[in-house]
Design a binder for these strands. Sequence first.
DNA 1: CAGGATCCCGCTAGATACTG
DNA 2: CAGTATCTAGCGGGATCCTG
Lengths: 152, 152
Amino acid sequence: MATTTAAQRRAAAKVQFDAFLAACPSRKLLDRISDKWVVLILCALGGDGLSRPAAGDGRGLPALRYSQLARTLAGVSQKMLTQTLRSLERDGLVTRTVTPTVPVTVTYELTDLGRSLLEVMRGVKRWAETNIPTVLAHREAYDARASRAPTS
Amino acid sequence: MATTTAAQRRAAAKVQFDAFLAACPSRKLLDRISDKWVVLILCALGGDGLSRPAAGDGRGLPALRYSQLARTLAGVSQKMLTQTLRSLERDGLVTRTVTPTVPVTVTYELTDLGRSLLEVMRGVKRWAETNIPTVLAHREAYDARASRAPTS
DNA sequence: CAGGATCCCGCTAGATACTG
DNA sequence: CAGTATCTAGCGGGATCCTG
């Protein structure tokens, strides 16, 4: 079942959204997804933070529990984790599944849409991880230049 | 001359940086580049916002002036534009060139490092622009479900 | 033209405490 | 376990004024 209307599909096909425009909805969406926690949650649900290589076949990505996510994203507060997960769920990027066990079990999983964004976000995370040394070197050079500023 | 130390190159080669760790420098870098304005500035310097197709050959990307960037990124404040550009310059992603004309001319250009990030960021921007209709539809559905919440 | 410097508001991240 | 609720400090970010 398609969850998009005809009008929406037409719009998408015509690429009529432009994030350069302040009023365009895509600008807001860009702002939402341009977030540290979004990147990390998506990557975690993509299986990037798992030590066990199980289910690493693209299909059937891991359904992670809240606590697993909290452990993977070191230093995240419950508030930010919950808040970001809700936002992702609302936007249709992840699904939230509640299993009424004795202590309730909640798992999160990427949707198809979420998986499409994951591809991009993985690139962002990897870029940061591979280029941080270069960036650090540039900063040192920049700051060194700034420190010997002409007093005259 | 190489601007990276031997230790840094070793580290990069071993992929020992992990943004999942709170203390890892790459986490901070991820936070920096996960920014609306960073994405838009990079895309603008990548030539995405230009009407004239000139210099769209990958090589020789446009050197945009401050005012051109301000016009392209509709709604950006001078503060955020200047601040983000400084940050990008410090990180070695863009170069800032001052030409001492009558009214001074300042142009910004992507470095090789900046161009490598551009590839990723273009994906982020395009994802937002192409998937905003779907996301909007999901939100509507989500909010509709939330509005008929059980009062009992 | 391309910013630098300030003021200041708003919101948001984080810490803490409580709960089904 | 997986949240919700509340409070607050901090700063992100816009508006405004000024300058080489």
